[in-house]
Design a binder for these strands. Structure first.
Length: 397
RNA sequence: GGAGGGUUAGCGAAGUGGUCAAACGCGGCAGACUGUAAAUCUGUUCCUUCGGGUUCCAUGGUUCAAAUCCAUGACCCUCCA
């Protein structure tokens, strides 16, 4: 199986430019490629992870990565299908950019070259931009992009409309200055990638390459990686290894094979073997367990993966709560259960706590609590919400 | 520049003076069933000291009573020029 065939098999290529020698060059290695991300938050979330992994895969195959941080594009905002984006502060953009840089380096390795498109766009005048870039791209071409088309009846500002030009400009710059021939991105970026290829073709008469990865969805068709309505972050201080492990171990049978292919470096033989065993005895959840472990291992290291696995097995297997870290909370010994729930961050309000208690969703030290007036007497208690959320808390004396 | 339409809970969307803490769908959470899966069924989904309190773009006003009427402003859409 060639490298290209492997990527296909993993389902990692959605759209690609139609170059004759692309497959060959990809297999050969040695291309300089880039992918970009706009610093709209101070951490990447799990949705970005498949791009990071793709970069890693390409690196392992001998291609050279550049990560572009969208200092300027981040200030404009990539058009979303539904509505205009909020504009972000300049300072915030720069602060986020620094965080992302560190994070990517820690995940993909130190061999990544970082560039910020702010560096080459900040001094370009509007007039120059129109002459040097605007002259090469036809508005009809831009209007035919899916993302723009969809926004035409709900409205799109000139700024967001121009976003794709900025990104095309980036590709052109990197192509010229760093001989970067390939851009990768999520499938929602397809329009922006092709703008760059178009611009390079028209302005320089040269051929550039691009491909996108499919958007990963969960079983219900939503964007992959939202847990309890919150994004799962790649920053361990924002989302623990255990939380990611739990999210993945809950993957549905129909999705788990896809996730193994996309999110792990296990070989085709290994994955096929796991799936075979899994299908024989699905209730063992071998595929989910492997996925969760591999994912956390690649992201945070073996130690963290082991810890997450042990914690998960302890809680769901033997109901052994020793592995839980104790969290000190403000509520005092002798407080009402509702205050403890809010204080421990298990429920956002007492009303919600009351509802949960009355519905039988809360246990304290493995005993179901049904009375919202329940008083917590012990100093250290394990509180369980539903089946999957556990917290061991220490109350104030 | 002219004419018209819109802004309602996380999202979509009803509601056009009191019966509105606001229908319905999605999403979320919990319960049952299970394999920590999916599907299905049930409950729930602003806060609360359970008396009540604070909401329907913003600010004023009319009224015993406003998401609903009026004024001004902000933002958005459609058509015409």
């Amino acid at each position: 199986m060639t490298f290209f065939e492997e990527l296909k098999w993993r389902g990692l290529i959605k759209d690609m430019t139609n170059n004759e020698d692309f497959e060959e060059k990809l297999n050969k290695g040695g291309m300089i490629f880039y992918w970009g991300t706009d610093p709209t938050a101070d951490s990447l979330h799990i949705g970005h992870y498949s791009s990071l992994l793709m970069a890693k895969r390409l690196m392992l195959h001998g291609h050279k990565p550049i990560l572009l941080i969208g200092g300027s594009t981040g200030m404009i905002g990539d058009p979303r299908p539904t509505a205009e984006r909020e504009i972000i502060d300049k300072e915030e953009v720069f602060k986020n950019a620094e965080c992302l840089k560190k994070q990517v380096a820690s995940i993909v390795g130190e061999d990544v070259e970082f560039v910020n498109n702010y560096d080459w766009t900040k001094d370009v005048t509007f007039l120059d931009f129109l002459r040097d870039i605007g002259k090469y791209i036809n508005v009809n071409y831009m209007l035919s992009k899916d993302i723009i088309k969809r926004r035409l009846d709900t409205g799109i500002t000139y700024a967001e409309f121009s976003y794709t030009l900025l990104q095309a400009f980036d590709f052109l710059k990197l192509f010229e200055s760093k001989n970067c021939e390939l851009q990768i991105g999520g499938s929602d970026q397809w329009g922006n990638l092709t703008s760059g290829v178009e611009l390079i073709g028209k302005k320089l008469g040269k051929e550039a390459y691009a491909f996108t990865m499919p958007l990963i969805l969960d079983a219900t068709g939503n964007k992959f990686g939202k847990s309890e309505g919150n994004a799962l972050w790649l920053d361990i201080n924002k989302t623990s290894g255990y939380d990611i492990y739990q999210y993945l171990i809950n993957s549905s049978d129909e999705k788990v094979e896809e996730y193994l292919k996309v999110f792990t470096f296990l070989s085709r033989e290994e994955i096929e073997d796991i799936m075979k065993k899994h299908k024989e005895k699905p209730e063992d959840r071998l595929a989910q367990k492997t996925l969760a472990y591999e994912f956390v291992k690649d992201l945070h290291g073996t130690e963290e993966a082991d810890a997450a696995k042990n914690k998960s097995e302890a809680l769901f297997g033997k109901m052994d709560t020793d592995s839980l870290e104790i969290e000190e909370i403000e509520a005092k010994v002798g407080s009402n259960i509702l205050d403890v729930l809010v204080s421990a961050g298990i429920t956002p309000s007492k009303s919600e706590g009351r509802r949960l208690v009355t519905q039988g969703g809360i246990s304290v030290d493995s005993e179901k609590i049904l009375d919202p007036n329940f008083i917590v007497e012990n100093e250290v208690v394990v509180i369980q919400k539903g089946k999957k959320v556990f917290k061991k808390v220490k109350l104030t004396k």
